[in-house]
Design a protein around this nucleic acid. Sequence first.
DNA 1: CCAATACCTAAAGTCAGATTCAGGTATTGG
DNA 2: CCAATACCTGAATCTGACTTTAGGTATTGG
Lengths: 146, 146
Amino acid sequence: MYTIGQIAEMFQLPVSTIRYYDKEGLFPDLKRSSGIRQFGPKEIEALRVIECLKKSGLEIKDIKLFMEWCSKGSDTYAQRRELFLRRKEIVEQEIAKLERVLDMIRFKCWYYEQAMQDGNEDHLNELVPNHLPPEIQKLYDHAHEK
Amino acid sequence: MYTIGQIAEMFQLPVSTIRYYDKEGLFPDLKRSSGIRQFGPKEIEALRVIECLKKSGLEIKDIKLFMEWCSKGSDTYAQRRELFLRRKEIVEQEIAKLERVLDMIRFKCWYYEQAMQDGNEDHLNELVPNHLPPEIQKLYDHAHEK
DNA sequence: CCAATACCTAAAGTCAGATTCAGGTATTGG
DNA sequence: CCAATACCTGAATCTGACTTTAGGTATTGG
């Protein structure tokens, strides 16, 4: 069993954040001894899942629902699985979006390199679209398409 | 030239958001005719860049700085290029993090499928770590490593 | 034993990024 | 010409996720 300070150290989180998570109901089975929180393996796994679900874009109030499902036992396996399947889709979409963002960024890096070589960006604005080197045209199209 | 309503339609953004961006200084060269904003190609490209920089995690106040550099002309090419190079690193790191999140999510999907087949998750908790199918062990390690 | 340290709560404050509101001005189509 | 619609402003409000503050209680090491 660990104190809140040890857990804070372990996850590199401020103590206040962990208290906040508790207040929001993210540790439904957390035990106490004379008022002091006692974190066990269940809460450690919960924090790993919280990290994961947060990065997947899930809000605290929905993470709370998930943690309540976990407390309810085997009746909620299907719901829990559905939630992770949905998060999987969301994260895959997010990665796809970021790949498009990267294309735009790579195009801009190329663009400013050209502009620096040439001393101005005027002809570049005229060039775009349809007269770029094919490698760069691809980045441009990908970044600017609807 | 377009009105704010047409631009809102074009980018699928609320009119209020575009006004907010203007108030924050994201269109330093925006023209007006009798008080009404007139959006030209420059502002349209600005919005595309705003979209990109926002998704890369840049804050509005820093996007404002970038837009000011754009207004200043060729003196700022190097700064602008540096900014995009930095965003490239940030986004690449973000994608890497999301890939790890995906590993955790895939593990959880597998886990709940097993639990549903077996009717409980008790033996799964004992199993973890080191007795998983190798394909799944990899996901687990990747998701749980420090 | 007692001071320093770590823990506790409830409530208020912060921050970014919008969104809404109240009260007005400009444009447009029948 | 005039009603409906789209535009304008500044100020206030909202949201999510924390963080800080004020005032206390519990534990621990010398």
